[in-house]
């Protein structure tokens, strides 16, 4: 009986090698081919002929340095502003008096149901009228949404009122209470929110595609998509571009695995 159980356990465990290979092998192939200059792809890799020539072509001649910079700027502002603005609003909803609070919060929830793709047309028209298309601001502004507010509010409601009162009696003003008392206490949720925002903004495609027309403002995803239409069969180059997009989230994921899974799994709440 015991033996049979162990056998089942081992067989099932070994069966998972198939999905494991399926999820990881494409990325290994991506990196391997990106180091070659093949015109057709195959499984034969000559390690002595591998070079970083595709990467140097990307960064030297194909604008990838500026794409990388744009993506980084957008991600940085999206993450910091979204965390700050969302937790401020979350705090207001959880602990402060606001006129018609329930109704406003209900409006916040409504905006979560409407998918982003359904409002890009008027969003483009607004940003066009404001004259801010082709700027970094237009790329990160719509990433700040009600989801972070919803999330931080839930955590802040559990903070004891006595604590905030005590800080007040000690002579803290409101901004100080928020920055020195509230924010440190909700740090875990801010980390999750930041990771979630990082992934969303780093991988964002449709909005950059619409809101930028000048290639100097392109983000990496947009750059890869352009690369694909210009170098359809230069596989090494295309996969080098893919690797450049792949690595930053992957490296962060390797370091902060637990927080990453929590942060990305959050999008389930968004719906």
């Amino acid at each position: 009986m015991r033996n049979r159980k162990t056998l089942i356990k081992i067989t099932v465990s070994l069966l998972f090698i198939i999905p494991l290979i399926l999820s990881i092998f494409p990325f290994i192939l991506m990196i391997l081919v990106s180091l070659t200059q093949k015109s057709s792809i195959d499984f034969r890799f000559n390690f002595s002929e591998m070079s970083l020539i595709n990467y140097s072509a990307l960064f030297r001649n194909l604008n990838f340095l500026s794409l990388f910079k744009n993506s980084s700027i957008v991600v940085f502002f999206a993450c910091t502003l979204n965390s700050l603005i969302a937790s401020m609003a979350g705090y207001a909803f959880a602990k402060k008096w606001i006129w018609a609070k329930e109704k406003i919060f209900w409006i916040y929830l409504m905006t979560l149901i409407v998918p982003g793709q359904a409002i890009i047309v008027p969003l483009f028209i607004i940003m066009n009228k404001l004259g801010i298309l082709n700027t970094h601001v237009v790329l990160f502004l719509p990433i700040i949404n009600a989801f972070g507010v919803f999330l931080t509010r839930q955590f802040m409601e559990s903070l004891p009122d006595d604590l905030l009162d005590a800080a007040k009696i000690d002579g803290c003003n409101e901004p100080r209470i928020f920055f020195n008392v509230v924010l440190p206490l909700v740090k875990p949720v801010i980390i999750s929110l930041t990771i979630f925002t990082f992934i969303t903004s780093w991988n964002d495609f449709l909005w950059p595609l619409i809101s930028t027309t000048s290639s100097s403002m392109y983000t990496l995803t947009l750059g890869l998509s352009t690369l694909q239409s210009n170098y359809l069969t230069n596989y090494g180059l295309l996969l080098a571009g893919s690797t450049v997009i792949f690595l930053p989230p992957f490296i962060l994921y390797s370091i902060l695995q637990k927080q990453f899974i929590e942060g990305v799994a959050l999008s389930g709440l968004k719906g």
Binding site: S23, F27, L29, G241, S242, F246, Y253
Partner: peptide
């Protein structure tokens, strides 16, 4: 490991699988 494809961009996924 099965979570790795989840964190990657759809554009990257599209590019590598098209190839």
């Amino acid at each position: 490991i099965l979570f790795i494809p989840v964190i990657t961009s759809m554009i990257l996924v599209g590019t590598i699988w098209r190839i």
